[in-house]
């Protein structure tokens, strides 16, 4: 992505953000400018500039009505990036490159419309060198995203996600949970539970080399990136079917876990970062 402008991601928060600062998303609090929301009696909102003459004249009780508008407020977009060893996987694409492209896209898209972008990289714990508090400064956000590609990935677990979720306390945020979700089942559930207050979008980094791209026949020696040892696998059509079925089952389990915690359905980022596909997904879920 270096050089080329980051792709643009369109997202809609599920909730109405509060706050008086002007932003791009429909806010919960009424404000002076924006989309018309409703009319309220003058006494409730004594703002003479926005008296709705037509509604006032129409009122048989001769009350004075004031128009109220929706304020547009900013949100904070956070990317929680798994930096455990399994993120070092290279198949059709380099997994960390996918994460970097995604984060660069998010950083650019968020800062473009005045939203803050924050980044937390974590493996066993939060990685201090890859922590970016939510900022609206585009350059800082993009630089943090670019740093992802060079981040060492050695740890064998992603327990730091829990710390990261704790650090996101406070107002609801749009949280992108970027990982391959090669986690133990309980950790998945706990992370989703810890992020239940936020609008969470799990982004499953997948690779066609891991399922559909498997050869029909052959002998392969698998080496676990997270230190799980070696294993020889004799690939054949039956095993390949079982393998793919297992991957589907894993994705289903992730979707169920996300649904149970109120998060959005996982977005499958396979092989190539496609900003438009992510935008469609974000608008649809």
């Amino acid at each position: 992505m270096t050089g080329a402008p980051p792709a643009e991601i369109v997202y809609l928060p599920r909730w109405r953000p509060r706050g008086s600062r002007p932003g791009a998303h429909r806010g919960r609090d009424p404000g002076g400018l924006g989309t018309f929301r409703d009319q309220v009696p003058f006494l409730a909102l004594p703002d003479a500039r926005r008296i709705d003459l037509r509604a006032t004249l129409r009122d048989p009780f001769e009350g004075v009505h004031v128009r109220r508008f929706e304020a547009r407020a900013p949100v904070e977009v956070w990317a929680l990036v798994d930096l455990s060893a399994s993120m070092g996987f290279r198949g059709t694409a380099d997994r960390i490159d996918l994460a970097r492209d995604l984060c660069a896209g998010l950083a650019a898209s968020a800062t473009r419309i005045g939203d803050g972008f924050g980044l937390i990289g974590c493996d066993r714990a939060i990685r201090a060198d890859l922590y970016l508090p939510a900022t609206r400064r585009r350059a800082a956000a993009l630089a943090a995203a670019a740093r992802l590609a060079d981040a060492p990935r050695a740890a064998r677990s992603a327990e730091g996600m829990l710390d990261a979720a704790r650090r996101l306390a406070g107002r609801p945020k749009l949280v992108f949970l970027v990982s391959d979700f090669r986690w133990p089942e309980p950790l998945v559930a706990r992370v989703f539970a810890a992020l239940a207050l936020h609008d969470t979008v799990p982004v499953l980094l997948a690779d066609s080399a891991e399922d559909a791209g498997l050869p029909d026949w052959g002998l392969a020696e698998l080496d676990d990136l997270e230190g799980g040892g070696r294993r020889v696998v004799f690939l054949r059509p039956a095993l390949r079917r079982r393998w793919i079925a297992r991957e589907h089952a894993r994705r289903d389990a992730l979707r169920r876990a996300a649904g149970a915690a109120g998060a959005r359905a996982p977005f499958h980022l396979v092989d190539r970062f496609d900003a438009d596909a992510l935008s469609r997904h974000l608008l649809a879920t």
Partner: peptide, 19 residues
């Protein structure tokens, strides 16, 4: 001496007695 294929998790491969 075989070429190793690094995978994210061994558990992705289903258990297989033949292998």
């Amino acid at each position: 001496g075989r070429r190793r294929a690094a995978v994210a998790a061994l558990s992705a491969a289903p258990p297989d007695p033949v292998s």
